[in-house]
Design a protein around this nucleic acid. Structure first.
Length: 403
DNA sequence: TGATATT
């Protein structure tokens, strides 16, 4: 009870209508409504809401507020939201649950959304995480920005307030001098507005610039002005003019290309050869279940020595559970994400702590979706030296008695 | 013409 009071007091201290709307709707629904003090809290919030900016939150996602500031965009100003983050460059196969699990290891999450293609359902590689506490959002940027997950390095930053004016502000630039650096590219374009991202494409083999790149501005009007000012112009010192135009939207592919991508990408829906071994396990286990055979020992398969995390389709919340031993007392979840994330889809991590001291008891667990990725992670991380400790990593066993 | 940046 007291914890709930503290929880909502903390929320109330976040002086944004957007937060109040969310808390109010949370209080109105579900088990919170039965608490004797919720009525007072809702009333207090609605008073503030009626005096403040309009709340337009009608959906499940994080809400937005009408920006009624007289000078909405000031160069270099701090973002409006201190709790809402955008996470870019997520691995293609990362799910919303995995995103929530990863960022939930920092602090309490108010809402979390992985953005998917409306038609294909494929991840668009970015998402939003809205924390309850602005301090956790800041901590998430400090600890998770730049985290390597599989082949990607994720970017974590404050989300700008959602608005039509910030959409379609990405430019494709070609004909750049091969010697031009990213910094020089930014210098050229920064006179037209605030740059959100910039990139120069390079040859995969030689690393030499391909003379093409991208500039994403904060606002579309800035991108329009940059086209007017720089398209067909020669950059300082260049011999040839550059081409500046709006970039293609990656989500606007032809249906042919989408189908091709769907067929070729090894994801959950269309498992590629890599998933075959895990599929074989699942099939075997289904057959064993169906025929009432005692849970089969997978030890006979391909030299695997010990397994327990049996993954049965339809049995939600399962995966390949990995036991990690010899963690330091101050180990936290983020270290587990950092170690195992690069090997594949991680759905959950947990550091086991002493109830009284809150220090790690020396071990933890990691759940991975795919068997093959889990096996590689174990093979790679068992014996790994973390600080002054050598880790023992294995599939979790179902030991009920100590040997 | 990207390491799919605004739900």
């Amino acid at each position: 009870m007291e914890q709930k009071r503290l929880y909502f007091r903390r929320q109330l201290q976040t002086n944004m209508a957007v937060r109040l709307c969310d808390v109010a709707s949370l209080l109105r629904s579900g088990s919170w409504a039965s608490e004797p003090w919720t009525g007072q809290v809702i009333a207090a919030m609605e008073t503030q809401l009626s005096n403040g900016p309009t709340c337009n939150n009608t959906s499940n996602g994080p809400s937005t507020i009408t920006n009624n500031c007289s000078s909405p965009v000031e160069s270099g100003s701090i973002e409006d939201s201190k709790t809402n983050l955008i996470v870019n460059y997520l691995p293609q196969n990362m799910t919303q649950e995995e995103l929530k699990s990863l960022f939930g290891s920092i602090g309490e999450i108010e809402s979390c959304k992985l953005v998917r293609d409306k038609i294909t359902g494929q991840s668009l590689g970015y998402g939003f995480v809205n924390y309850v506490d602005p301090k956790d959002a800041e901590k998430a940027i400090n600890t998770l920005n730049g985290l390597r997950l599989q082949t990607k390095t994720i970017k974590v930053s404050y989300a700008r307030p959602s608005s039509a004016s910030i959409r379609d502000a990405n430019l494709y630039v070609s004909g750049l001098p091969k010697t031009m650096t990213q910094k020089e590219l930014e210098q050229l374009f920064s006179q037209y507005g605030r740059i959100i991202t910039s990139r120069i494409l390079v040859d995969q083999v030689t690393g030499v610039s391909r003379g093409v790149g991208f500039i994403r501005f904060d606002r579309r009007v800035e991108a329009e002005e940059a086209i007017k000012g720089l398209n067909c112009q020669k950059p300082p010192g260049a011999t040839e003019p550059i081409t500046v135009k709006f970039a293609n939207n990656p989500s606007q592919k032809t249906s042919q290309a989408l189908l091709s991508q769907l067929y070729q990408s090894p994801n959950r829906r269309y498992p590629g050869p890599l998933a075959q071994q895990a599929q074989r396990f699942r099939l075997d286990n289904l057959l064993n279940m169906a025929y009432g055979v005692k849970r089969f020992s997978p030890m006979a398969i391909d030299g695997v020595t010990s397994l327990a995390g049996i993954n049965i389709p339809g049995h939600a919340g399962t995966g390949w559970c990995i036991f990690v031993y010899n963690l330091a007392p101050d180990a936290d979840e983020s270290i587990l994400w950092q170690m195992f994330g690069p090997f594949g889809a991680v759905t959950n991590v947990k550091v086991i702590r002493d109830f009284n001291t809150n220090k790690c008891k020396g071990f933890g667990f990691v759940t991975m979706t795919n068997y093959d990725e889990a096996a590689v992670a174990i093979a790679s991380l068992n014996g790994y030296r973390l600080g002054d400790r050598v880790l023992q990593v294995s599939f979790k066993t179902n030991k009920t008695h100590k040997a």
